[in-house]
Simulated assay, not measured.
Amino acid sequence: MDVLQLKQDIIAYSKTIGIDKIGFTSASIFDELKGRLIAQQQLGYQSGFEEPDIEKRTNPELLLPKARSIIAIALAYPSKLKNAPKSTKEERRGIFCRASWGQDYHTVLRDRLEKLEQFILEKMPEAKVKSMVDTGELSDRAVAQRAGIGWSGKNCSIITPEFGSYVYLGEMVTNIPLPPDAPIEDRCGTCNKCIEVCPTGALVGPGQLNSQRCIAFLTQTKGFLPEEFRAKVGNRLYGCDTCQTVCPENRGKDFHLHAEMEPDPELAKPLLKPLLHMSNKEFKEKFGHVSGSWRGKKPIQRNAIIALAHYKDKTAVPDLVKLLKEDVRPVIRGMAAWALGKIGDQAALSALEKAYEREQEEDVLKEIQKGLEMLHMQSE
């Protein structure tokens, strides 16, 4: 088969199934990426969520024998929330990042890639294909950059001329030798806004991220959040968009092209207090279809407690006292104690003093002590 014609057919078909951008590159080893990954590993900058085998992340032939090409796809997602509910003094709200609005993007992109696979296999039944989205071995960004989807921005996002960085990425490795596309020229220039405004200094340099300090990563952890980051998290329940929202390339970019990606405002900006006492079943029923639910309810509830402390929401004191007294999870009890200290009133003080007498967990006792110290400082 004429591979040049096949490429054109793939591009034409991709437009009919809701793929906003498609690019092609060779399946050769990602040498530059390999060097950067080794450096990241040595510096301790990795999140731990990545594929640990750097060879698999950089050599497509280890994933598909005789791999010749990689097809990269991008789908644009909304950046603005229509009819966003207001956060009030009595009813405070948290926020999920844009990548967790609408249906889980892994599901959406897998659907598009499966359709693309079927199309290719109908044209070439003997072809071999292997698709992945985010959780696969390859680096979506490295593939997308080399395939001409966009350039790799200083904020570590792929930035497309058409949609900015508000795109989901996926790719397909194949043994078909499809003609490659040329990469796009970097347009970040001297702009350093993303690096300058990163709340925790996680962007340590252009295109270099210390994941251990990144709020997007920190909101997904399950343990006690280190105290230096708690004030920085604010009302974020999952993820962080700061390095995208300040990017000049994203100005005016807001695309509503896919029904599955349209956010429910009540899920994108949910009320905080109801989250605190939600059962596993209730959480799965309400949030199970969004990508921000993948770590379960515990990180979301912990972050909701931090958000209530951020707002100094006195109406949440009874809810936090209940958690401190009854929740079986030390992290939730401890964070509730810390939040009570931040919010500070007589009921909070009384609850912390009683909790200090009965608590057995050392980490929780430390948080109770912090809460009591904050309250004593406020009364001085």
Rank of each mutant, 00 (worst) to 15 (best):
Y45S: 01
G292A: 08
S26E: 13
T221D: 06
S131I: 15
E162P: 01
E326R: 12
I195Q: 08
V317Y: 01
A336M: 04
A74Q: 04
P274Y: 10
L43N: 12
L275I: 11
G35T: 09
G371A: 07
T107I: 15
T245N: 04
L178W: 05
T160W: 09
I343P: 00
F224N: 02
G296H: 11
D31C: 08
K21H: 11
H258R: 12
L365H: 04
D319S: 15
L138A: 02
K222W: 11
L267D: 05
T221R: 15
H256F: 11
A348G: 00
Y13V: 07
G170W: 14
V167A: 03
R213V: 02
E262A: 07
A336Y: 01
G288N: 04
V233N: 06
K370A: 11
M261T: 04
C191I: 12
L138P: 01
R295H: 10
S157T: 07
S293W: 07
E362D: 11
H376A: 12
N235V: 10
A259S: 08
E326I: 09
T58A: 07
G239M: 06
S211Y: 10
L6V: 05
A216C: 00
I10F: 04
S291N: 03
M261S: 05
K123E: 04
I195N: 03
I95H: 04
T242K: 14
L121N: 01
D345W: 06
Y77I: 06
F224T: 00
G136N: 09
R112A: 05
E353V: 05
D111C: 03
Y356L: 10
N83F: 11
G48Q: 09
E185C: 01
G223P: 12
I332F: 03
R93L: 10
L365E: 02
T25N: 01
L257M: 08
H106K: 03
Q8L: 11
A259R: 11
K354H: 10
T25M: 10
K123H: 13
A309N: 04
N210I: 14
S69F: 11
G296L: 13
I38N: 03
A309Q: 01
F163D: 02
P299L: 12
Y168V: 00
H376F: 12
M1N: 03
Y238M: 10
G296Q: 08
P270F: 10
M374Q: 13
R98F: 06
K222D: 09
K269N: 11
A67M: 07
D186E: 15
E90C: 00
K222A: 04
D181W: 05
L81H: 07
L349I: 13
A74P: 00
E228P: 04
I29C: 08
D264N: 15
E361A: 06
K82D: 06
D2F: 08
V167F: 07
A72I: 13
A27F: 12
E249A: 09
G334R: 11
R93Q: 02
R236S: 04
L271I: 03
P177S: 00
E122T: 12
C156N: 13
R92M: 03
V233S: 00
Q369K: 09
P330T: 05
L203T: 06
L203E: 07
C156R: 09
M278T: 08
G94T: 12
P161F: 14
